[in-house]
């Protein structure tokens, strides 16, 4: 009898987990697709040398520019990883890529609007959210920009594509390493190592004869390939997030407390675990807005889109675990300190 109840309980937990898993996936997939599309377009249609020439050299300016890039590429935290990865591979300054990675899910028109609608009777929430996100993104981006050569912090597949800081003979090998034949095999769906990270624009640039149809086909192929790779990772991430949510019920997290300090911790943990997409998280947060402090709601809205359980797996496709830990810990600490200051020193 007891085991029957236990079985029924396990079944209901499984069902709950499955629902959470599917809802995370359904919510994130369109944005991942969007991110992949932007990334592929960026790869094929934008000449990275021009892009690099356009970006500011000063790390602070580059970080600010990166944080504001989200207005051009409205992606949530699932779509920002492919674009940030592409920016890194295209040779953009690391400050720009990191700034984009952390800020783009929040600093974009869709999230702006959604937060505005959700917090209609507390409109300053929008400005706090965006302002704090940019501030934290710029700080972390500046920290990463100290590293002149980011390759040791990137996954080998990405690092290999990246040029070293000073032009070295490696440049020649890198370019001559990607002959048309390789791309051809890639287009033929080779089962070998994924070649989607090739600087294709470079090839396109040296191929003035490349017509729009060829380019469009290349964009499409790259999208498919990248989506297949990151989609699989997203499935893993969503499964982990769903499992954790079933194992640690929301009530436990919320029971951590509603005080000026504990509420921030509770809401940050909640943001990390529920892994909700930044385009809809303000509506989710709104249901807590009347119980929790403003600072803790702000922490939820700022920290959630930067790092959550689901997108850690996506980050790991680009960064080595040490870099992900730095991103995660710094984002968490900065969010905590700033929102704690908001709670303890402002009457907002």
């Amino acid at each position: 009898m007891l085991s029957l109840f236990a079985l029924a309980g396990a079944m209901s937990q499984f069902n709950q987990g499955l629902t959470l898993f599917l809802s995370l996936l359904v919510e994130a997939t369109p944005f991942l697709l969007l991110g992949v599309a932007f990334s592929s377009l960026l790869a094929i249609l934008v000449d990275e040398r021009k892009l690099v020439a356009l970006t500011p050299k000063n790390p602070v300016l580059a970080a600010i520019a990166g944080s504001l890039f989200g207005c051009l590429f409205p992606v949530c935290e699932c779509g920002n990883v492919p674009v940030a990865r592409r920016l890194l591979m295209q040779g953009a300054p690391s400050a720009l890529a990191i700034g984009f990675l952390l800020a783009a899910p929040t600093v974009n028109p869709i999230v702006f609007w959604a937060t505005w609608v959700a917090f209609r009777d507390q409109p300053s929430m929008v400005f706090w959210r965006v302002g704090l996100t940019i501030l934290i993104s710029v700080i972390i981006a500046c920290v990463f920009s100290v590293q002149k050569d980011l390759r040791p912090f990137l996954q080998p597949a990405i690092a290999r594509q990246l040029l070293p800081p000073e032009p070295e003979p490696a440049l020649a090998t890198a370019t001559s390493d990607s002959p048309l034949l390789t791309r051809g095999t890639y287009l033929l769906q080779s089962t070998g190592p994924v070649k989607l990270d090739q600087p294709l624009a470079m090839d396109m640039a040296v191929l003035p004869s490349a017509t729009w149809t060829v380019k469009a086909q290349a964009v499409l192929e790259m999208m498919l390939q990248e989506f297949r790779e990151l989609g699989a990772v997203l499935v893993m991430g969503s499964a982990i997030a769903a499992t954790v949510q079933v194992a640690i019920p929301r009530e436990w997290i919320l029971a951590l407390g509603q005080g000026p300090i504990t509420s921030i911790l509770a809401m940050m943990l909640l943001a990390w675990v529920v892994s909700i997409c930044s385009t809809v998280d303000s509506f989710f947060a709104l249901s807590f807005a009347s119980i929790f402090t403003s600072g803790s709601i702000l922490a939820f809205l700022v920290f959630g889109p930067m790092i959550d359980l689901k997108n850690i797996s996506l980050l790991l496709t680009t960064f080595k675990s040490r870099a992900v830990i730095y991103l995660f810990v710094l984002a968490a600490q900065l969010t905590f300190v700033f929102t704690l200051a908001v709670n303890l020193y402002t009457s907002w």
Binding site: V143, V146, K148, P152, F153, L330, Q333, L334, F336, V337
Partner: peptide, 19 residues
């Protein structure tokens, strides 16, 4: 590379402690 690697680790850890 090893030299530059040290710099990110150092500053990140220092910032974490500071925070």
């Amino acid at each position: 590379l090893r030299r530059s690697q040290a710099s990110l680790d150092q500053i990140a850890l220092a910032l974490m402690v500071g925070l």
